[in-house]
Design a protein around this nucleic acid. Structure first.
Lengths: 243, 243
DNA sequence: CGAATGTTTGATGTCCATCAAACGCCGTGG
DNA sequence: CCACGGCGTTTGATGGACATCAAACATTCG
């Protein structure tokens, strides 16, 4: 077994997020063997570009990214944000090309998993195969929730739902659920929610005046989760890419 | 090998759509063995209800369905439409519950594939495993396109993109790409596209006056695909769930 | 420090939702 | 066969939520 410079899956604090639970040690090394740790990419750097050939999927170790779909006429859609413990690139399997670009929102380190090796491992490790399928299934369901958000909810509902979704994802990773830094810009949030940055900005000040949040540029505190839930109007677990 | 009342996968005209290409006959019978043909469900009937436990995925043989996500406050989102040769239920793997309801838009017949058996087969048939992963990947990518549609495009862009997407899906199945029946109501289309039925109705008449389409209630003819593409503003292959 | 980028706030406009009503289609039963 | 009721569709009038345009302000980074 090769020793990797940046540690093994066994020791990774995120293994509960990005690995099947209960994968025995006797099998963990097989995954360890195929995972490549890459050196961090800087803020603003592309992990992969839309249209580029697909070779690997990625798991985020630290940092965060946005995924962006670029239309012919130049309009962009931020299709999602990816945080530590979450997977990236599963949408590229079908056409063997990435349908979106992935851009680091801050200095970000990743694990790269070559897809051919992932597939082989999925062939003879049922729990790993099921984990991969669950991960993809979750992403479909999560996109469906987001569709409902964009299709049926107004601006304040969208933003509160988005903030709550971030909160849940941070909590799932053992981080503070009611106080965290936004790694993305207002423009990114706005684009993702089908709104404009001005609207997001206005809503932030409105939420602050209502005592729902505290926010200083990118430093966000959720003060009243109940009210945010009431505004969002959904019992909620959408947008999340983690269990 | 069991003989099924409704024929085998081998004989199915849709096998190019819902099976991996090049699956040798020597392996096809294994899939045939686990596929259950169900008697057709009537228009308006539920195939499964949101929240119901997940056991199987489905392939549509004839007819069509809509998938609907119901929020706590009663608002609904039509997350998609499913036609012959397409799969249904893959979003339920993660939580072992269906995150959406599936409703037949017309009399519809399906093949049911118990998930535990599908998983086993995926374990020892690489081409089948890859086909399943590609199918899920395609659904993610397609949802991302739809997000871009809802997030960035106006009403006439959404509708023309939707019509073109239907056209492509029909063509993929060997049906006429420029003349077909809409199995869903104006309200379903509107909801799916994040608009109202009045807006859809107005756009249909507008498109008709512009000579882009001909439409009599549900009977649609696309007269000017180029203009529709120009309006949609996308080179296009979104929304599609088929290759 | 200064330029570039991101954020806030205000004034105005518009696309589409909402409300309302008539019309057409289609299946049911007299 | 036609009358009827229900549902889906069309069309019009009005309004509102959010985009757009514009400018000041804050933050980041070379």
């Amino acid at each position: 077994m090769t020793i990797h410079a940046s540690g093994s899956c066994d020791q990774c604090s995120l293994k509960l997020l990005c690995l099947p639970v209960g994968l025995p040690d006797s099998e963990l090394w097989q995954l360890d063997e195929i995972v490549q740790r890459r050196r961090p990419i800087a803020k603003g750097q592309l992990l992969f570009r839309m249209g580029a050939p697909f070779h690997s999927v990625y798991a985020v170790r630290t940092g965060s990214l946005k995924t962006v779909l670029l239309a012919d006429d130049g309009t962009e859609q931020v299709t999602g944000f990816t945080f530590a413990g979450e997977m990236l690139g599963l949408d590229a399997i079908n056409r063997s090309r990435h349908p979106v670009s992935a851009v680091a929102l801050e200095s970000t380190s990743l694990c790269e998993i070559p897809f051919d090796k992932l597939d082989l491992l999925a062939g003879h490790l049922p729990s790993f195969r099921q984990h991969v399928m669950r991960t993809m299934s979750r992403e479909i369901a999560s996109d469906e929730s987001l569709l409902a958000l964009l299709g049926q909810r107004n601006a304040e509902q969208r933003l509160s739902a988005f903030l709550l979704s971030l909160s849940m994802r941070f909590r799932a990773r053992g981080l503070m659920a009611d106080h965290f830094a936004l790694s993305m810009s207002r423009a990114d949030i706005a684009n993702h929610l089908g709104l404009t940055q001005e609207t997001i900005s206005r809503l932030f000040t409105q939420f602050r005046k209502q005592g729902l949040i505290e926010i200083h540029t990118r430093d966000l505190t959720l003060l009243d989760l109940d009210s945010l839930h009431r505004i969002a109007g959904i019992r909620f677990e959408p947008l999340s890419r983690i269990a």
